[in-house]
Every structure is written in C-alpha cells, then in structure tokens.
Simulated assay, not measured.
Amino acid sequence: MNLAIFRLAVCCGLRVSEIGSLRLRDVYLVRPRPHIRIPRGAAKGGKPRTVPLWWDAGTLADLTAWKEQRLAEGAKETDALIASRRHGGALSRYTLRKRFLTACKCLGNSRVHTLTIHHGRHTFISHALAGGRSLAEVRDAAGHANVSITSG
C-alpha cells in the first residue's frame, strides 16, 4: 500500500486529497493508453483530468499489481483504491501522509522529515519534463490552469 501511495504522489503527481478519493474504477489499465481518471469532485478547482500511466512502466506495473490485489481481496470497482485493511474505507489525509513518509524512509530520517506528498507533485513534473514531455502534456496531467504554473 505504501508503494502505491508513493507512486501516486511521486510518479503520477496526485494531491493527497486526490489519492484519498480515488476509486478502483478510476484506474484504467486498458492498453494502449492506461491512465488514472481524476473525477470532477476530487480534482482541485473541480476540473477533471487524466494522468497517463504509459509514461512510466514501473508505475504502471506497480499500480496494476495493487489494483489486482485489491480486487482479489474482494473489493469492488466502486471501492477506494487505497483503503484500510481493517474496515475497507478510504484512508484519512493524515494516514496517507504518514504512509507516504514510511515509504520514503530509505532516504534517511533527516530527509524524510522535510518531505510531503506535495513534494511528489514537483518531482513528477520535473521528471516528466526531463523525460521529454511537453509543457502542455505535463500541465494537463498535473491539472494546472496554465503553463506558467507548470514551468515555474
């Protein structure tokens, strides 16, 4: 679960509120363009968007495995993608942040205390641009209103 949260933040650029509100049905794994659909109610400013998963094979593989595991455990497509094993409900923002930091512990304790899930969004944007994606593609995936926010 911690790896899935890390991937959603750092490799997909999702906000903590978006991670918490994702449903299994929002993760489309159909080729050739697997993606995550951020629905209107979950996205900042109410603007729905799609986040490509085909940009990163490792993220696609990890999120595919996580979704398959949740479905094998009996979860339905309408259930939370990231859910409590105890009661099956979506995790709180606090718990998501705590699990994100647990996934980041390999960076060392001094570094972990300075990180947030929002830093993952910045990493996603930087890596996508460094990987050759256009400003417009990254702007759309990040859900920014204009390119100046993405390039800033």
Results as ranks from 00 to 15, higher is better:
6 F>L: 15
138 V>D: 03
46 G>A: 04
90 A>C: 09
29 L>W: 06
16 V>N: 08
57 A>Q: 14
41 G>T: 01
67 K>R: 15
150 T>A: 08
72 A>Q: 15
111 R>T: 15
122 H>M: 09
130 A>F: 09
26 D>A: 00
152 G>H: 13
44 K>V: 00
46 G>N: 04
142 A>Y: 06
40 R>C: 10
25 R>P: 02
41 G>M: 06
44 K>E: 02
146 N>C: 13
44 K>A: 03
110 S>Y: 10
58 G>Q: 14
126 S>V: 09
23 R>I: 00
51 V>D: 00
96 L>I: 13
46 G>D: 01
55 W>G: 12
31 R>I: 01
60 L>I: 06
55 W>K: 12
32 P>G: 03
101 L>N: 11
130 A>I: 04
19 I>G: 08
45 G>P: 10
24 L>C: 07
140 D>H: 08
15 R>D: 01
85 R>M: 07
19 I>W: 09
137 E>A: 14
19 I>E: 04
88 G>R: 15
45 G>N: 11
115 L>H: 13
48 P>W: 13
150 T>Q: 08
5 I>A: 05
93 R>L: 10
40 R>A: 12
99 R>V: 00
16 V>T: 07
62 D>K: 10
85 R>Q: 11
4 A>Y: 03
72 A>S: 15
143 G>I: 00
101 L>A: 08
91 L>E: 01
20 G>S: 02
146 N>V: 00
29 L>P: 10
76 K>P: 02
129 L>A: 12
49 R>S: 04
52 P>L: 09
84 S>T: 01
72 A>G: 10
68 E>C: 07
76 K>L: 13
127 H>K: 14
47 K>P: 02
51 V>G: 03
95 T>P: 03
147 V>D: 07
148 S>K: 14
125 I>V: 14
34 P>F: 02
137 E>Y: 05
38 I>Q: 05
46 G>W: 03
65 A>D: 06
152 G>V: 05
58 G>L: 15
19 I>C: 10
33 R>P: 00
116 T>G: 13
29 L>V: 05
75 A>P: 00
53 L>I: 07
104 C>P: 09
124 F>I: 06
22 L>M: 04
55 W>D: 08
147 V>E: 12
107 L>H: 15
94 Y>D: 11
51 V>E: 02
51 V>L: 08
99 R>P: 00
143 G>Q: 06
87 H>T: 06
20 G>Y: 01
82 I>A: 01
52 P>Q: 07
72 A>N: 10
147 V>H: 02
122 H>P: 09
